[in-house]
Amino acid sequence: MDRRRILRLLTAGALATLSGGAAARSVFSGNRYYKGPVSDHFDGRVFFNPGGEEPLGFADLMRWRLSGERETWPARWPEDALEASPAARVEGESLRVTMVGHATMLIQTAGLNILTDPVFSERASPASFAGPRRVNRPGIAFDALPPIDIVLVSHNHYDHLDVDTLARLAARHDPLVVTPLGNDTIIRARAPGMRIEVLDWGGALSHGGATIHCEPAHHWSARGLTDRRMALWAAFVIETPAGKIYHIGDTGFGGGSNYRDAREKHGGFRLALLPIGAYEPRWFMSGQHQNPAEAVEGMRLAGARFAAGHHWGTFQLTDEGITRPLDALRAALASSRIEPDRFRPLRPGEAWDVPD
C-alpha cells in the first residue's frame, strides 16, 4: 500500500476514533460487515444505542481539536514501569487480573486465561508510523503470555481491535475470540483461520467452564469514514466458578441504564473492569466515554464488590493529563465513601488478586 493511501486511512481512522465517523456518513447503501434482521438496536443497515446519544460530528471535532486545551503527556511513563511474568494458570475460585495496558487485561481464574481487547502494537492506528503511540511497553511481554484460551473484543476502534495482535495470538495460542456482530468480518480479513464466535446483545456461549454473555454498552463503532456503526459494540459478563466479572471496553454513562440492567439480570459482580480515561472535554466525550465519577457510580449501580480501572495511561486520545484519572477517581471514591482498595486503577504490569 502506498504512503498516500496509508495517510488517507490514518486520517479516516483518527476521525472515526475521535468523532464517531460523523464527518461523512457512509456512501454505501448496505453494511459491509453484517447482514441480519432488524432489532431494537439495528435498523437493517447500522447499529445504534436505543434511546441513546449520537456521537458528535466533524465540525465539533475540529472545534475540540483547535481549542488548545490538551495537556502534554510524557513520551514514556511511568519511569518504574513493571513487566509481569504471569503464572501459567490460576486454579479454583482464585481470581487474578493483570494489566497489560489501556483496555488489555489478563483475567485468570478456574484454570482459564482470558485476554480483553488485546493491543500489543506500538500505535492504536491503521498505520505503523503515525497515530496515538503507547507511552509504556505492555505490562506483559507478548512472549511471556500464558496460554490464552479466550479473547474478548468489545468493538472495532483501533485501541480495542488490533488485527496484527489478533493474528499473532491466532498463530501462537489459537484462542477462541468472542466479539459482537460484524467484527468477525474485520478480524478474518487479517487472520482468516482465527476461531471466532459472534454474539448479539443478550446472547451467550459457554467455553472451557465459563459462560460469556454479550451485553449493551453506550458506544459506537468505526474503522474509517465510511463504516460508521456497521459493527456492533458491547460489554461482556464472564460467568465463572469464581463469580461473575463485568468487562466494559468503552462506554458513555448513558444515565446508568446499562449498569442497572446488568445488575437486574446478573445479580451483581465480584469484579467489574471499567474504563476511567479518555473523557475530556465532557461536551464532546460524554456520549462515548464515561469519567471516573461515572465509573464509580456504575460500579455501585451494577452491584460490583470490586472494580479495576482501565483505558487510561497508555494512549493519549483526549485532553486530560496522564494522571488526571487517578486524581478524579480518588475524589469520586471519597465522595461516595467507597474504600480505595475496592476500585483500583491498575498500571501496566500490575497484578491484583481480587478478594472473594
Results as ranks from 00 to 15, higher is better:
72 T>G: 00
26 S>C: 08
342 R>G: 06
225 L>V: 12
70 R>I: 01
90 V>K: 02
14 A>M: 15
44 G>T: 01
86 P>K: 03
84 A>W: 01
116 T>D: 05
343 F>V: 07
197 E>Y: 01
85 S>N: 11
228 R>Q: 15
137 R>E: 15
29 S>Q: 15
167 A>E: 15
55 P>R: 06
289 H>G: 03
256 G>R: 09
197 E>H: 04
195 R>S: 06
85 S>R: 13
166 L>T: 13
151 V>S: 06
352 W>C: 09
197 E>Q: 09
182 G>K: 02
110 A>K: 12
78 P>K: 06
9 L>N: 12
199 L>C: 10
281 P>E: 14
271 L>Y: 08
162 D>A: 00
232 L>N: 14
182 G>W: 07
90 V>M: 04
178 V>G: 02
351 A>I: 05
22 A>L: 08
50 P>R: 02
101 G>F: 05
68 G>D: 14
9 L>H: 09
254 G>M: 00
76 R>D: 10
53 E>V: 10
104 T>Q: 02
238 I>M: 10
132 P>A: 08
254 G>W: 05
176 L>A: 06
309 G>M: 10
249 G>P: 07
266 H>N: 14
84 A>C: 10
90 V>F: 02
356 D>S: 10
289 H>N: 09
9 L>W: 03
280 E>T: 11
66 L>S: 10
344 R>K: 11
16 A>W: 07
274 L>M: 12
298 G>F: 04
188 R>T: 12
188 R>I: 13
242 A>T: 01
29 S>D: 15
41 H>T: 07
159 D>N: 13
220 W>S: 14
279 Y>E: 04
274 L>Y: 00
66 L>M: 10
235 A>N: 14
169 L>K: 07
140 I>E: 13
272 A>E: 04
340 P>C: 00
182 G>N: 05
286 S>G: 00
133 R>A: 01
142 F>R: 11
204 A>D: 11
285 M>I: 00
344 R>E: 12
176 L>D: 13
65 R>H: 10
336 S>H: 08
164 D>N: 13
284 F>G: 10
147 P>T: 06
178 V>N: 12
151 V>Y: 02
67 S>L: 00
233 W>H: 06
208 G>F: 02
316 Q>R: 05
224 G>L: 04
53 E>D: 14
28 F>I: 00
222 A>V: 03
264 E>N: 07
170 A>S: 15
265 K>G: 00
129 F>A: 11
72 T>M: 12
261 D>F: 05
311 H>G: 08
96 R>L: 07
57 G>V: 00
229 R>Y: 08
183 N>S: 12
197 E>S: 13
153 V>P: 09
309 G>L: 06
236 F>P: 12
182 G>Q: 01
169 L>E: 11
210 A>F: 09
103 A>S: 08
238 I>V: 13
268 G>W: 05
275 P>Q: 14
346 L>V: 03
347 R>Q: 15
66 L>V: 03
273 L>Q: 05
311 H>T: 09
104 T>I: 02
84 A>G: 00
340 P>L: 04
236 F>D: 14
133 R>I: 03
189 A>H: 11
254 G>I: 02
32 R>G: 12
264 E>S: 11
243 G>T: 07
32 R>N: 11
294 E>N: 08
154 S>L: 08
78 P>E: 15
41 H>I: 04
237 V>N: 11
296 V>Q: 11
142 F>S: 09
135 V>A: 03
194 M>Q: 13
238 I>G: 09
85 S>H: 11
23 A>D: 11
